[in-house]
Amino acid sequence: MSEKRLSLSPARFLSARRRHRSAGLVVLLFGLLAVGSAYAAFAPDNAVADNSAQSQQIEEGKKLFAVGCSSCHGLNAEGGGNGEGKMAGPSLIGVGAAAVDFQVGTGRMPAMQTGAQVPRKTPAYTQAEIEALAAYVASLAPGPAVPAQESYDISKATDEQVTRGGELFRTNCTACHNFAGRGGALPNGKYAPSLMNVDPKHIYEAMLTGPQQMPVFSDQVMQPEDKRDIIAYLHALQEQKDPGGFGLGRLGPVSEGLWGWLVGIGVLVCVAVWIGAKGVKAKGAKASE
């Protein structure tokens, strides 16, 4: 029974069907819809107010991303090619806010050129802009968030924690970063950077996200207190003075040996030559005796 074929007025149509077996269901649906709409229109909507600041930040981040990042990472952060079939920038979907905060906060991104490794430099964005970019990238897919300040707060670190951090550091980090955190060489022009004078937050984020060729040390395996202890140990290393004043890069026997062999023995050879040289002679004179 099609309703379109009936040429009744709406009122008479409804009246005629009021005893239809699905009339009750239709009335119920109408009622629910009306109440729902009314609630949406008149209820004080806190949720929307809360979200608007965040969505505004995401929107702002998206604009910054389109200008500063999309040429390599793609307009939607899906990763991009350089036109020669090589990857210019990896996909950023799922890397999380922590990766953005590390890469942009240490000035590594935006990169000046592609190469073996993107170096650390002065950040190009303000903290607010970095947060906006991080919020945008984090909105694309879930990923590690920027760590809370207390998780890398080392102001109350005890000697015991520093010692434990040293053990963890020597087990997990020294293979690349050197036992004094001074960094080291990797193949094909890559390198592990020095960890001196790095913001504790950025050290934490590097472990969390594994930037460039660095492996990841997730919070479930390398737990936040482990990471904090490592940072406390690095801070203690940085504060430690070099006895005598010359650290020689704290590279150990290589730089010390180079110094000893070239400079130390070199000076000794020069002195020996000087000792063996003839002194001033009184030309043509005769001994007084």
Binding site: V280, A282, G284, A287, S288
Partner: peptide, 10 residues
């Protein structure tokens, strides 16, 4: 042999 200054000047 050439003498040094100390050889000729006491």
């Amino acid at each position: 042999h050439e003498y040094r200054i100390t050889d000729i000047d006491p």
